[in-house]
């Protein structure tokens, strides 16, 4: 599903978090919002998810105006910066949460839920941790569980807020490729926020440079693996 961001702006009181910005995200693309803290990238991502409301402008999902949709109706898989895993639920229950939250008519049977959760745990290559609690997991495992939980709702797009921010350098590198692979397999339009330029250029198809609420520059990356070949002017 393609995403159109049209003249989106956001003010907090008298403070401007986002000046009118427009981005066109083709269906199936993996794009990175890159910038320092306070650049408005997280605000933009949260507006896409329906967690913040823009002061002006609109968002189109698949050509249809989604600006007024509630967060539940948007069905955006969102991975939070610190994962926001439910501490009192097991990994299995976390991943199953979105399926169990569906209205009775649309809710899969428990057997079907179990099947889907296990398939997702396989996908993130952690098949055996369903019975554990989030605080028994490593940082990298938590990040992958958060990803599986977001994917479980069969989202229309994937939104990730600093998905690797809380991890150490080694795990970070491994998980980057993991995200790229999951993206390629699911074909979901994916937007992630980062302040790490290498990370953005290594896995994204399109990198959007943001600063102080403005878009500074957009760069199309060549197919994955050859990112270094294209020079990108630092701002």
């Amino acid at each position: 599903m393609n995403i159109e961001i049209e003249e989106l702006a956001k003010e907090f009181g008298t403070e401007r978090a986002l000046y009118p910005v427009s981005i066109s995200i083709p269906s199936g693309a993996l794009i990175a919002l890159l910038g320092p803290s306070g650049s408005g990238k997280t605000t933009l991502l949260r507006i896409l998810a329906g967690l913040e409301f823009p002061t002006s402008g609109r968002v189109l999902f698949g050509g249809q105006d989604a600006t007024g949709l509630s967060v539940q109706e948007r069905r955006a898989g969102f991975v939070f910066q610190h994962y926001a895993l439910f501490k009192h639920m097991t990994v299995f229950e976390n991943v199953a949460y979105g399926l169990r939250a569906r209205p009775r008519k649309e809710r899969p049977t428990e057997a079907e839920i179990a099947r889907r959760v296990n398939r997702l745990l396989d996908l993130i290559q952690l098949p055996d941790i369903g019975g554990r609690y989030p605080n028994q997991l490593s940082g990298g495992q938590r990040q992958r569980v958060a990803l599986a939980r977001a994917l479980a709702i069969e989202p229309r797009m994937l939104l990730l807020d600093e998905p690797f921010g809380a991890l150490d350098a080694k795990v970070r590198k491994e998980l980057r490729q993991g995200l790229r692979e999951i993206h390629d397999r699911t074909g979901l339009t994916t937007v992630f926020v980062t302040h790490d330029q290498d990370e953005a250029m290594e896995i994204a198809d399109l990198v959007v440079f943001m600063s102080k609420g403005h878009i500074e520059q957009m760069s199309v990356m060549p197919p994955a693996g050859k990112a270094r070949a294209v020079p990108v002017a630092p701002r």
Partner: peptide
């Protein structure tokens, strides 16, 4: 607020 927000993005209603 992150855990409540996560629940909402997963489709849960406010009460849920």
């Amino acid at each position: 607020r992150a855990e409540e927000e996560a629940a909402l993005t997963l489709g849960a209603s406010g009460w849920r």
